[in-house]
């Protein structure tokens, strides 16, 4: 490294140093420690025995992990596009001055302030076939209530619905912010050109939101592939594992089975998968040239 480089590094150190220190200490070090752990049989109390690739060989042939992985991706493939579309639509509709839009923004943001313990409690009492809110409505209409939380084909969907309801706030805000950054004069110019609304939307609004959309999709993909609390508390992964995501499996493996090595191996695999998917999205989203 030349003198200039060293000087620049020295100059940058006070800015990025503190964060990097904590980042490495609190995230990267434990991650690497977890990687080491994944080559061991280990329990939470410091017992460790080297096991080579045993844990990885094991997960490759573990049907429960296979099911959990399938669930996780199935779920993300539903939640991410739906959530993105809903929040984009909401942002487009609510990117307006005035009281009405502001009240609506508040309403759609409100669920984001609740913790996962609470939203699952709420949705249990919406979805349960006995005396749930939907069941009451269904029964009032003379229909047999649907067992959302215990039907193998519906349980994961129930988790997805609860999550979408819960997660609208952040992406909607990001889209709103993206919209507000589009300079007003572009729209005025388009109006002068007598462009109709659809054309304006397609030619101006959407392209300007592309980077926001990529960000939202990446963040949501990473977040949804880490689905945990909602599934644990709403369906406990059931019935028959039909709604068990990978992270719940990791949690069970670590905390009720005390198989820390295996849990770490599972976590490493999930980490690599999330990384791969989000990187692909990033490349797909930024490869074309900006308009």
């Amino acid at each position: 490294m030349n003198a200039q480089g060293r000087r620049n590094l020295l100059q940058a150190a006070p800015f990025i140093g503190p964060f990097l220190l904590l980042y490495v200490g609190l995230l990267i070090y434990p991650l690497l420690d977890g990687l080491t752990l994944s080559f061991h049989r280990a329990d939470p109390f410091g017992g460790r025995a080297f096991a080579g690739l045993e844990n990885y060989a094991r997960l490759a042939s573990d049907p429960v992990f296979g099911q959990a992985l399938g669930n996780t991706f199935k779920y993300a493939v539903v939640v991410v596009p739906v959530l993105t579309a809903i929040t984009l639509a909401l942002a487009l509709a609510l990117n307006k001055p005035g009281r009405t839009a502001s009240v609506f923004r508040g309403l759609f943001f409100s669920s984001a302030v609740l913790s996962v313990t609470i939203i699952t409690l709420i949705w249990r009492f919406v979805l349960t076939p006995d005396a749930g809110l939907l069941a009451e409505v269904w029964e009032a209409a003379g229909r047999e209530p649907v067992p959302f939380l215990s039907h193998p084909d519906l349980a994961l969907l129930a988790v997805a619905v609860a999550t979408i309801w819960w997660s609208i706030g952040l992406p909607m805000m990001l889209f709103l912010a993206g919209l507000q950054q589009i300079p007003e004069d572009i729209f005025e110019a388009a109006a002068l050109d007598r462009a109709n609304r659809w054309t304006t939307f397609r030619r101006i609004t959407l392209p300007s939101l592309r980077r926001t959309a990529v960000l939202v999709v990446m963040l949501q993909t990473a977040a949804q592939l880490q689905l945990f609390g909602q599934a644990q508390l709403l369906t406990a992964g059931g019935p028959g594992g039909a709604s068990r995501p990978v992270v719940l499996f990791i949690y069970e493996t670590a905390f009720t089975r005390w198989e820390l090595g295996y849990a770490s191996a599972l976590a490493q695999v999930l980490f690599v998968l999330i990384l791969a998917v989000t990187l692909l999205q990033f490349r797909a989203g930024t490869s074309r040239r900006e308009p």
Binding site: Y29, L31, L219, Q226, F228, F271, T278
Partner: peptide
């Protein structure tokens, strides 16, 4: 940015020990 992909469960136990 890699950190965005780290699931909390992957670090929580080593971090607890730390």
């Amino acid at each position: 940015l890699l950190g965005l992909a780290v699931p909390e469960q992957a670090v929580i136990l080593p971090r607890h020990q730390l």
